[in-house]
Design a protein around this nucleic acid. Structure first.
Length: 156
DNA sequence: GCCAACGTTGGC
DNA sequence: GCCAACGTTGGC
């Protein structure tokens, strides 16, 4: 089993939106970045655990845990001109973009903000805490995953 | 709202 | 295939 982190803007699609859906499950559409696409298409497996990260907000933070419930399949929103993430270069005969389904597992007991994550030497290898990081989906090492859960009970 | 980082596009 | 221009991300 592998571990991941996925970013979303809470104003657009936050963890509260995911929780409100039937089965607390949704497809993670709209990813238009090849590195992120490859991870969803090729690497993420059912049962993998995923941190839900709120980006572009105050404060940016890890807020919960999700689980992959369906492996990579074609992101049909790329074919629809009415969709925000329409991509005319993707078509059903030659799909360019993929997505996975994720299910809300639980909220963290507290939000763990980015500026706190940056203070731990244990997490210094995470792309999340590195400068200029723009990748919206990234793998998380098991020891990093375990470490983050171990500070969940700490006082902020 | 600013701006640095970085991915993508397109002319050559 | 290079690289400048441009667009987007996302922290601050």
């Amino acid at each position: 089993m592998a571990y991941w982190l996925m970013k979303s803007e809470p104003d657009v699609f936050g963890i509260e939106h995911l929780k409100a859906l039937p089965n607390k499950t949704d497809h993670w559409d709209g990813v238009r970045n090849y590195q992120a696409r490859n991870m969803m298409r090729d690497e993420m497996k059912v049962g993998d655990q995923v941190f839900f990260y709120h980006s572009n907000c105050k404060p940016p933070a890890i807020v919960g845990i999700m689980e992959v419930t369906r492996e990579g399949y074609v992101d049909h929103t790329a074919f629809d001109p009415d969709e925000k993430y329409y991509d005319p270069k993707s078509n059903p005969d030659k799909p360019r973009w993929y997505m996975v389904d994720v299910k809300h597992v639980r909220d963290l007991k507290r939000e763990i903000p980015l500026d706190e994550l940056k203070t731990y030497p244990e997490l210094s290898d995470m792309r999340l805490v590195q400068k200029g990081n723009r990748l919206s989906i990234m793998p998380v090492a098991k020891d990093e995953w375990d470490f983050i859960l171990s500070i969940e009970d700490d006082k902020a």
